[in-house]
């Protein structure tokens, strides 16, 4: 996605950080003015289909708003990084894309429909360390869970299901660990198994929640490669991360988040020192004018 539309909204968003609540009204102005243009964007340029449309969406748990005024589009085969400090609402946005957290204002469209209707074609990869390492389940059984939707509740997995699961495990480089218990693998390997489970589901949209946290170099490399392969097949990827280098390396777009949106657009153009400072508050340091280090995440 590109265009002056979203950049305009992003700059306005950055101002919110500078002047807190007062700027919200100001952000309304330009965003409202361009809303119509964005709806036209949904159809996209010829040959590009929008996988994800955030149309001035606000997301809330009950009465408590968590994310406000999200605006942007991700096309098929593109990856977007969600960047922001802890508690910024990255996980909440991922849950909203799954239809598990309600959109209270605006609109979120996933694969051309509402998030809960799109779920069938969306795969979610949780953080590996949130799962019980003592659970009696083997690596191949975890991957086969990705096929449950296609297998149903009663049928035995077919040869095709087994092939998909085996290929997915191969893709993350863990084919020889298929029969090991999930919990005996390292953190990075477990993260790769969960990614394989998502790949086995053949999704059109992949959601990854902090997949690089505490992950070894080999696993990081494997995950990045698998993301690229999926993008090549037309799958769109949403990945939340603290790692700006990974955003540069693997993502076409970034979405800077901290309760509000501080920028949404092409990675290089959007990851500017000003926007990062706005997103992270006082926890961003500038190095030599063009690089930013985030000191607290």
């Amino acid at each position: 996605m590109t265009g002056p539309t979203e950049n305009g909204a992003a700059v306005a968003g950055a101002a919110v950080g500078a002047a807190a609540g007062a700027a919200v009204g100001a952000a309304d102005g330009p965003a409202a003015g361009t809303a119509a243009g964005t709806v036209a964007d949904v159809a996209g340029p010829p040959g590009r289909t929008a996988a994800l449309v955030l149309d001035r969406a606000s997301v809330a748990y009950g009465d408590v708003p968590v994310l406000e005024e999200l605006h942007g589009t991700v096309y098929e085969g593109e990856a977007v990084a969600l960047i922001g400090p802890n508690g910024a609402g990255k996980s909440t946005l991922i849950k909203a894309l799954l239809g598990l957290v309600p959109v209270v204002r605006g609109r979120i469209e996933v694969l051309g429909t509402s998030p809960d209707r799109a779920r069938r074609d969306v795969a979610y990869v949780p953080q590996a360390d949130t799962l019980d390492p003592d659970f009696p389940i083997s690596v191949e059984q975890v991957v086969m869970m990705g096929r449950y939707r296609k297998i149903g509740w009663l049928r035995r997995p077919s040869a095709a299901d087994r092939e998909h699961a085996a290929a997915a495990l191969e893709q993350v480089g863990l084919a020889e660990r298929a029969r090991h218990r999930f919990g005996t693998l390292s953190g990075g390997q477990r993260q790769r198994v969960l990614l394989a489970r998502a790949i086995a589901a053949q999704p059109r949209l992949l959601l990854l929640d902090e997949p690089f946290n505490g992950v070894d170099a080999v696993s990081q490399h494997t995950i990045l490669e698998a993301m690229d392969a999926l993008k090549g097949r037309g799958t769109s990827v949403v990945v939340s991360t603290h790692d700006l280098a990974i955003a540069h390396l693997a993502c076409d777009e970034v979405c800077l988040l901290n309760r509000h949106q501080f920028g949404f657009g092409p990675t290089d153009a959007t990851l500017t020192p000003e926007r990062l400072r706005a997103t992270y508050g006082g926890h961003a340091l500038e190095l030599r004018g063009d690089r930013v280090i985030v000191t607290q995440t």
């Binding site: 598990l100 809960d116 969306v122 979610y124 949780p126 659970f135 389940i137 869970m145 449950y148 509740w153």
Partner: peptide, 21 residues
Amino acid sequence: AVLRRPLTLRAFDPEGARAAG
């Protein structure tokens, strides 16, 4: 027996189970 798959997924990965509908 009928619910063994959803039950296993829910026990292992509650968020994943919700995400899977």
